[in-house]
Structure formats: C-alpha cells, structure tokens
C-alpha cells in the first residue's frame, strides 16, 4: 500500500512538516490567547451570581476539555502503534501524556480555586472531581510505565493497553454531573438546545478553547520531534540534520 499518510506519517516527514508548520501555529496561538484573554478579562460582563470570580472559567474549562481531548489523542495514537505498529503513534502518545497530565492538574487546581469562593470548599469527593482525579492518575500511571520499562516496544505496548482501558473513564467524567448529585454545575455549553450562557461570555471561552488546542498541537509536535531525535538517533537523516543544526 502506498497511501500518502504512510509517507507523511513516517517520523522523517513528520519531523520536517511539523517544523515547517510550527511558526504559523505559534503565531495563530499567540493571537488567539491575546484575543481570548482580552475579551475574557475586559469585554465579558461579570456574572450576575458569581461576580468576577466566574472569569476563572476561561482557564478552567479549556484545561478540563484538553484533559479529555488529549487523552483521546493519546489513546488513539497508542492504539495505532499497538494495532498497526505505527512508530509515530507510540511517539505521539508518549509526547502527549505529560501535557495531558499538566492540563488535568490545571483543571483540578483552577477548579478548586473556583470552588472555594463559590461552593465554600476547595474539594469535595463527588463524581466529577473524583473521576477527573482518576484521569490524572491514569496519565501518571502511563508516564511511570514508560519510565519503568527499558524495552521501548514493550513499554509502548503496555502503555497502549493502560491508555485504552482508561478510556472507560472518559464518559464517566463527561456524564458525572448528570448521573450523580454534585456541587459541580451541569453542562452549559454543549446542551443540545441553546447553550445557557450569554454570547458575550461564551465567545471568549470558545476562543480560549481553540487557543489551548493549538497550544497543545504546537507543544505536542515539539515533544514528538524530541522523541524522534532520541529514538532515531542512528538514522542517517537525523545525523545529517544534527550536523547541519547542532553546535559541535
């Protein structure tokens, strides 16, 4: 089979096209953050119930969305490595895991910083918060497994299985606010009828969500390039590139 993604999905081509794309993505990302932060902090009105504290939404919700999105990316990439032996898939999974863990950490901390003034407590052992904490442990487990197993292929296979089993947690997190009683508010954006949030408050949230996604793509690309350099260090093209760019 000579499909185009076969070529562009090889580590060598990924390295060059991701490098070519990065400056554009970085520019786009900075622009999105500038507009998102400006509209979120200055243009959006204060909430009639929560006052100015609701502005935490613009760093909390995108981080929480990313914690789930990155898990899907990581599990799919790891699955492509497990099933079709796509080397790049294993590398993308390894590159994504720490980012997913950091976004989960941010979702938990910014959430508790929002919870304290609004609910009166930093933490409550309800379904949403507990399942999100379990997500953090899934990421950390995956990372620890990669660090503990020396044989790269065994580590990738074990990691892929952990990542795939862990996907059962994703719908639990998503529906937790509907299935169980909780202090956490229900879905406001993804409701099938009109979202129950004013457009002037929703727009900055969507811009920040795109900014976070582009940020993840840029950083994941850079981390994947590091994985490629580490594990293909004996490939002729890597040596050539290093002699070209590296300082001896």
């Amino acid at each position: 089979m000579n499909l185009p993604f076969h070529k562009y999905g090889s580590p060598k081509y990924f390295y060059s096209w991701s490098l070519m794309l990065s400056p554009w993505l970085i520019g786009f990302c900075v622009l999105l953050f500038a507009v998102g932060l400006y509209t979120g902090l200055f243009v959006a009105p204060a909430d009639y119930q929560q006052g100015e504290s609701f502005r935490i939404i613009y760093v909390h919700v995108p981080a929480a969305w990313m914690s789930l999105f990155i898990y899907v990316v990581m599990a799919s990439a790891a699955a492509s490595g497990l099933i079709w032996h796509v080397k790049l898939g294993d590398m993308i999974a390894r590159a994504s895991a720490p980012l997913g863990a950091w976004f989960t950490f941010l979702a938990l901390v910014t959430g508790s910083l929002w919870g304290k003034p609004m609910w009166g407590t930093y933490w409550v052992w309800d379904a949403r918060l507990t399942s999100e904490l379990i997500l953090l442990f899934l990421y950390l487990g995956y990372i620890a497994l990669q660090g503990a197993i020396d044989d790269r292929r065994v580590a990738a296979r074990a990691g892929a299985i952990v990542a795939l089993v862990g996907t059962v947690n994703l719908p639990i997190i998503h529906y937790s606010v509907e299935w169980w009683n909780t202090l956490h508010q229900g879905p406001t954006v993804s409701k099938l009828d009109a979202p129950s949030i004013a457009p002037s408050m929703l727009m900055p949230l969507l811009i920040m969500a795109v900014a976070y996604t582009v940020y993840f793509v840029v950083v994941m690309f850079a981390r994947t390039r590091c994985e490629i350099l580490e594990f293909e260090r004996n490939a002729a093209w890597v040596k050539e590139r290093a002699l070209e760019k590296g300082v001896v």
Partner: peptide, 11 residues
C-alpha cells in the same frame, strides 16, 4: 531539549 539533542547527536 530539541536543541540539546541535536547538539548531542552532532557531537
């Protein structure tokens, strides 16, 4: 890290 890796391979 990418710079560091390229330097190390070059060396």
């Amino acid at each position: 890290k990418e710079k560091m890796l390229l330097n190390r391979i070059a060396q």
